[in-house]
């Protein structure tokens, strides 16, 4: 039918090009990804590097992870303070205003103290309604004496987090995300191995030619 097998396709390369290719093959470094054999234009290499750093940055667990109960524990204790209760029971203003003012007061007082949760509180702002719903559960867990950091806020409930990895002294899994187990450690390792693999493979594979080489048995 269509392909003529008695007339092999011809290569587009002439002898000089082949010689040149062989020279490149024998002298290139880094597998030749960045040199000679039509390297990627610099802007594109930059784009690839940017991709890597973006991947790390935007998926870093600071963002998009659920808040834990501990960051609201202080809100709950401040909510029952007399100043806040006074605002909340003020009949002269509407409920929404009271809630807003009370929350503003709580946040203002929290700003007075250093807290490891300042950033997370900005990430996960809370309204008075939700705080009211959460408060009994937070208090209940506090009286039980459990670590509130092990509990995630999902909706208006505190739920034991999915994190695993470390064990507590009593053999139960610790529901905190271990530093070594954020998915990142694997990703970084994976990326390094990828770079090595590409360089080894690219360096070890033959250059490409249409021309059959009958001098070597495949």
């Amino acid at each position: 039918m269509s392909w003529r097998f008695d007339r092999p396709l011809f290569t587009l390369a002439d002898d000089d090009m082949n010689k040149d290719t062989q020279h490149v093959w024998e002298h290139e470094s880094l597998g030749g990804i960045a040199e000679n054999n039509n390297p990627l234009p610099r802007p594109i290499i930059t784009l690839l590097l940017l991709t890597y750093f973006t991947a790390m940055a935007i998926t870093f667990p600071l963002y998009g992870q659920r808040p834990n109960g501990e960051i609201y524990a202080d809100y709950v204790s401040l909510m029952s303070s007399t100043e806040v209760q006074k605002i909340l029971s003020n009949k002269n203003i509407s409920h929404e205003q009271a809630d807003k003012q009370a929350m503003a007061l709580i946040e203002e007082s929290l700003a007075q103290f250093d807290s490891p949760y300042t950033f997370q509180r900005i990430q996960h702002p809370i309204g008075m309604d939700k705080l009211r719903a959460l408060a009994p559960e937070i208090i209940e867990l506090q009286t039980k004496g459990v670590d509130l950091r092990e509990y995630n806020v999902i909706g208006h409930h505190l739920v034991l987090a999915n994190f695993e990895g470390n064990l507590k002294a009593n053999g139960e899994p610790e529901r905190l995300q271990p530093w070594w187990d954020k998915g990142y450690t694997i990703a970084v390792w994976w990326f390094i191995v990828f770079c090595f693999a590409v360089i080894i493979v690219v360096k070890r594979l033959p250059h490409f030619s249409w021309r059959p080489d009958h001098s070597i048995a495949h």
Binding site: A55, T59, N162, Q177, G183, Y184, A187
Partner: peptide, 19 residues
């Protein structure tokens, strides 16, 4: 409710598909 590390890993690798 999959393990969190798996979701993080998948997320990083997902962006790296851009490579």
């Amino acid at each position: 409710p999959l393990p969190e590390w798996l979701k993080s890993f998948a997320s990083v690798e997902g962006v790296l598909i851009l490579v």
